[in-house]
């Protein structure tokens, strides 16, 4: 397996090498060592390769990912897997703010905690956080699923569209237009599938589901005086 030492070869070399991997490449496994909190590690990948980052990273690790499977053996800075299109990003430690922001597809798994604004404006990505998430998570989330095994911070799902939020622990407060919804069999089945795909052991029956009350979709004339 090729090992790229970021302290020797630099970020541009790393990303150019990984981004130039073709669809059917035989070189499927890569390891990145000495990340030392660097920004923009393994961004813009577009091939079905497996990348292991041995250490903690800074901003935007795995951003815009397509197809690739990226595992970080450490913690990540702000904006991990931002705008991910497909593939998988797994963080074995914690994630800083706005993890998985605006993601359109694929799956982000955080084995530790995620900070504020996790899944902000998510548009189809699936996010599984095994620990807690911070305030304003799933703000304006449009599509996809956010699964949290721990607790959620203040204003969960504020101004939510059609994303589904599953939380096993406590929710400090719900944001505007976010409400608890019934867990029906199709939700339990979906949650079981998400947990399995994430490699996370948890009982779907222990979760509660939250979603949009859909009261903010259209202008309500009774609120005219508020503007």
């Amino acid at each position: 397996m090729p090992i790229i030492d970021l302290s020797e070869n630099g970020l541009r070399h790393l990303n150019e090498t990984l981004q130039s991997q073709a669809q059917g490449t035989n070189q499927q496994d890569w390891e990145i060592i000495n990340p030392r909190g660097s920004h923009a590690i393994a961004v813009g990948l577009d091939a079905p390769i497996q990348v292991t980052v041995s250490g903690s990273t800074g901003y935007y690790c795995g951003g815009m990912n397509k197809q690739a499977s990226i595992t970080v053996k450490g913690s990540v800075g702000p904006g991990v897997a931002e705008n991910m299109m497909s593939g998988m990003v797994v963080v074995e430690g914690d994630a800083s703010q706005y993890a998985g922001a605006t993601g359109r597809g694929g799956m982000l798994v955080v084995r530790g905690n995620a900070a504020s604004r996790c899944g902000i404006s998510m548009k189809g990505i699936d996010i599984v956080v095994e620990g807690n998430i911070g305030h304003m998570s799933a703000f304006m989330a449009q599509r996809g699923n956010l699964v949290v095994l721990g607790d959620a911070g203040e204003a969960l799902g504020d101004s939510l569209y059609e994303a589904r939020l599953y939380v096993r622990g406590s929710v400090k407060s719900l944001g505007a237009d976010c409400i608890e919804k019934e867990m029906r069999p199709e939700h339990l089945a979906q949650l079981a599938e998400l947990l399995e795909r994430a490699g996370t052991d948890a009982d779907p029956a222990m979760f509660r589901r939250y979603g949009s009350a859909r009261q903010l979709y259209h202008f309500n004339v009774d609120n005219a005086s508020a503007y």
Binding site: R36, G37, S38, S56, G58, S75, G77
Partner: peptide, 8 residues
């Protein structure tokens, strides 16, 4: 540190 980079 403002970022983890500062601590490594």
């Amino acid at each position: 540190g403002s970022e983890y980079r500062a601590l490594v």
